[in-house]
Design a protein around this nucleic acid. Structure first.
Lengths: 198, 198
DNA sequence: TTGATTGTAACGATCGTTTGATACATAGAG
DNA sequence: CTCTATGTATCAAACGATCGTTACAATCAA
């Protein structure tokens, strides 16, 4: 009899699944953190989502705080990598910024993305965690600082304020966008037009 | 010996302070909710901030959820009132929108304002509470819907997307603005210019 | 049999909330 | 003016629920 059923209830799963299982835990946690915030998400909530008890999660994670920081760093790193890859061959400064915006928006609006928007609000995370998040985020913002500085924008624009407004707009898109009326490209076009990039 | 000291330690305070005390509780709660979110703020935290024990707060509040909803509604109502008053005498549609934006920004950046930015993220509030907040917020957005629809904007702008971007930008300003480098007016000017209002 | 994975059960801390006692300011009675 | 009754505002203590976390036993694959 071959092992046709993929429903092992107890004990160890087949070898090699452990990396997958860990990814499941991270993905579930990312989704819950993004939806309910750090304080609003309990370890047991995460466990329930992947079919484990809360305590069992500690086989994969060191602590709730470490899990959150890891997810946050992973999300920013993935976003940064994808954006850098997307703008690599692009020469025109404004087109580079536009491409970066479109890519970041695509990441934020992708429902299957692990990198869902916990890039926003640091609310309800302990101070010790917040420090690590801010540091990592500053590095991410550096990428956009260069792109914005190189772009040609209307006269009188404060580039620092502009960058913050732009990133806030892109990062918070997932909180209001719902598929249907507008496509991702249409939303991107509206944002790029509003911010005088295209 | 006359009662020179205003430091009653226990028992009732002098009559008439009760309304003041309630306002203190609401103000403290608003600040903490804005900083740490709903789940990240405990009843005992609020009590400590006004010099009361957690349980004593229930002399003034019915529940944590009701307190949050009340603060949220008060904030939106106050903001709406101030904005309506500010645009009352203004005729030009774009100047009306600009005035509304400047007023909302002033509210959001005023550190003494009870209406600090819990207008944002609904994260970590229970579903039952969220429904009430969304309903109240829709009414507030209606004000801006009219203002945006009446304004003259660049061709091809989707007014619904534009309104959402604009409100998101204004409401989240308090999360990054720090006094010093730029004045409130300068920030307002940057936002209005970016959004092609002035 | 062994080691990887998960469940069971509990720890102490903290959560929102309730209950009942208590301190005080004040009002009325003498 | 003093004494007592009353209502207001607060504390002290506890309730059960849930929190993050840990220790250890149980299960299953190899």
């Amino acid at each position: 009899m071959v092992a046709m059923s993929r429903a092992p209830r107890k004990g160890a799963k087949s070898q090699g699944d452990t990396a997958t299982r860990e990814a499941e835990v991270v993905a579930a946690a990312a989704e819950l953190f993004a939806r309910d915030g750090f304080a609003g998400t309990s370890i047991r909530d995460i466990g329930e989502k992947v079919g484990l008890l809360g305590g069992s999660l500690y086989y994969y994670i060191r602590s709730k705080e470490a899990l959150f920081v890891r997810i946050h760093d992973d999300a920013l790193q993935t976003a940064e990598d994808r954006i850098r890859a997307a703008i690599e061959g692009v020469d025109d400064p404004n087109e580079r910024l536009a491409t970066a915006c479109r890519t970041l928006l695509a990441i934020q609006l992708d429902p299957n993305s692990l990198t869902t928007p916990l890039m926003n609000d640091f609310r309800s995370v302990p101070d010790s965690v917040r420090e690590q998040l801010v540091e990592r985020r500053d590095a991410f913002e550096g990428l956009f600082r260069d792109l914005v500085n190189d772009a040609s924008l209307p006269a009188g624009v404060d580039r620092d304020v502009y960058r913050i407004l732009l990133l806030t707009t892109l990062n918070s898109a997932a909180s209001w966008y719902r598929p249907g009326r507008l496509s991702l490209d249409e939303v991107a076009q509206q944002i790029l037009r509003t911010y005088s990039i295209t």
